[in-house]
Amino acid sequence: MFKRLREFNEQTVTVNIEGEDVRVPLGETVAAAVLVHNLGYTRTTPISGAPRAPLCMMGVCFECLMEIDGLPNTQACQVQVAEGMKIRRQQGVGGSDA
């Protein structure tokens, strides 16, 4: 579980994480936002369905692949939150039910 060191007084946006509206600071990455939201895992593997969560936060592990605004295979650690953004876990290869 992760938390913010202090409650933000910066500008915020509202994103939707797995169906829930959440207020997050502008400029934060989607990966940071879902970690603080305690989403637990961000994707499941296509082979065994094992849950995975961000490992590197710098774009080299691809464990943070999520479905962001309907686009599967998006690296949550490389995308910043935006107003109204829809964020979902990626199940398996992703995009199958999109």
Partner: peptide
């Protein structure tokens, strides 16, 4: 980048 840390 975000002031985000392990909570527990």
């Amino acid at each position: 980048t975000a002031g985000v840390v392990p909570a527990q």
